[in-house]
Amino acid sequence: MDSYAPEEHLACVIARLLEGARHAAVGASSPIPAVGCFLRKNIDPAFRVSLQQRRESNPFTEGSRELFDLAGQGRIDVFFLGGAQIDGEGAINLVRAEGKRFPGSFGSAYMYGVVPRTILFREEHSRRTLVPKVEFASARGAPAALLTGRALFSWQKDKRRFRLESVHPGNTLAQIRERTGFEFDSSDQVPETAAPSTAELEAIRKKVKPEIAANYPEFAARVWPNS
């Protein structure tokens, strides 16, 4: 089996979640979602990805408000959000928790409400980040999925509750329950998240890497140190 970085695996999971999407926008400091989007574009050339903070060749010519205007019209169907805290009802907190100050809500309050497919993404999977209820809701909405560094959850709209879909290699259902601060549904036998294929890894390293290195240089140097 090919060896791969955990970041590469997460990007593959994101690319699979993007099946059928037309246009994803990627906001501030989201290199792994960006890798996932460019990998998806490699599979489906008609898929469009707009990096909000692209340094050169920025896709927006009306300044940073254009992203929000596009989203308001329904021209963006996927967006990614994270949070210092994410709760069992899908709310995210980017402002403050346990006396600590975080950067702020960015555009999340709006994007979560207007973009049809919001993917929640946070590498850290702990009771600190995945909480029963956020201290401050920067944004509320109905996510398409919650992906962490340890597991993938789907969202059950009718029950307004997460369901554990798969655990990444090295994790068990019991460990995920232990590390998750909110309650969620699952089957008794949770499958392991499918590993990256050789083709996916090759696409990431040959096609996607140059795009990422130009816009997320620190991330690229960390994940692909020998290139």
Partner: peptide, 29 residues
């Protein structure tokens, strides 16, 4: 939140007192 600030500045540039923004109703902001 980003679009609220853009709206507030667009209201000022048009010389109107406020600008409506949809989609943010769920936020504690």
């Amino acid at each position: 939140t980003c679009p609220a600030i853009h709206c507030a500045l667009q209201a000022a540039e048009k010389g109107v007192p406020f600008m409506p923004l949809a989609g943010i109703g769920g936020s504690d902001l």
